[in-house]
Amino acid sequence: MHKIFWQFTLIFSSLAFGNAIVSIFRLPLSGSIVGMLLLFLSLLSGIIQIEWVEKAANVHLQHMTLLFIPPVIGALVYFHHIHMKIWKLGVVIAGSSLCIIVITGYSVELYEKLKRRLKQ
């Protein structure tokens, strides 16, 4: 248990570093993304060993659902306050989701086909 606590402290420190970098350099990114990149680079360069953070990160990611509960409840409450046609939102969501699926799928397949042709 205390091992997970120390591992979590390391993850939290990455977040704190990320936040500090964002506010010092006034980056338009969020501190957590910068923190993630910092931790990722530290892992790649070997400054931090994967065993030092793996356990806490796995537990954390496994139970990520727990963290979504309060915002989803907030969403349900807020939903009554949207004064607009819901179907419009539905079309935007469905349309752009289809766009992502179709365009990502096609561009990856096209890339693979082109590469195969170049090889021949």
Partner: peptide, 25 residues
């Protein structure tokens, strides 16, 4: 309830940081 759920938004940020582990693997 929402006012009291601040801990979860901090944990949400550390969850993003934790994504470094699957990315590394």
């Amino acid at each position: 309830y929402e006012n009291g759920s601040g801990l979860f938004s901090i944990l949400m940020q550390t969850a993003i940081v934790s994504l470094a582990i699957p990315l590394y693997k």
